[in-house]
Amino acid sequence: MDDHHSGPVETGAPMNYEEHESTYDLFIAGTKWGTMILVVLLIAMAAGFFTTAGFLGATILFIILNIAGFLLLR
């Protein structure tokens, strides 16, 4: 009824560490750039809605902050 195994049932395929590292690096880069873009978008939206900057001012602020963010985070 009860099977006793002396070792692991399935060991699986060997890890491809190069692929794992490249996937992790891609995930970290996407998280970093995505977070920067979302923060800049929120700042630009706050400037557009709560100040007299309006849509054009918020768009210009969005572009300027994205350029500054890309230069600082690379």
Rank of each mutant, 00 (worst) to 15 (best):
N66Q: 10
I63E: 00
L42I: 12
G12V: 09
I43K: 01
D25V: 12
A58Q: 08
E18T: 11
T23W: 03
G12K: 11
I37A: 06
N16E: 14
I60W: 00
P8G: 10
T31I: 11
A68Q: 09
A46L: 12
A47C: 09
I63D: 00
A68P: 09
V39T: 01
D25G: 09
S6V: 03
L56W: 15
A47I: 10
P8Q: 06
P8I: 09
N16R: 05
T23Y: 00
I28A: 06
L61N: 02
H5R: 00
V39Q: 03
G12R: 15
S6E: 13
N16C: 06
L65N: 00
L56D: 14
V9C: 02
L41S: 01
M36G: 12
G30Y: 06
M45P: 08
I67V: 14
V40M: 00
G12D: 12
G69N: 07
S22T: 15
G54S: 03
L73Y: 09
T59L: 10
D2Y: 08
I28G: 03
M36T: 14
D2H: 07
N16H: 11
A13L: 13
V39N: 01
L61V: 03
M36I: 14
V9T: 07
M1L: 09
T35L: 06
P8D: 06
A53N: 09
A58P: 13
T31S: 11
G57E: 02
D3W: 02
G30T: 15
L65Q: 01
P8S: 06
Y17R: 01
T31M: 08
G57F: 02
L73C: 07
T23E: 10
V40Y: 01
G12P: 08
A44G: 05
I37L: 08
G34W: 00
T35Q: 09
A53T: 11
F50A: 03
E21H: 13
I28K: 07
V39F: 04
I60E: 07
G12H: 14
D3Y: 03
S6P: 14
I60H: 00
M15S: 10
G7H: 15
N66M: 13
E10L: 04
H20R: 10
L38F: 14
F62L: 15
I63G: 00
H4Y: 08
E18N: 14
R74V: 04
F49Q: 10
K32M: 09
L73Q: 07
G57Y: 04
E18K: 11
P14S: 07
I28V: 10
L72I: 04
T51R: 03
V40Q: 01
E19V: 05
G34P: 05
F49M: 08
D2V: 13
L38M: 15
T51H: 02
M15K: 05
A53I: 11
S22E: 15
G12S: 11
R74A: 03
H20T: 12
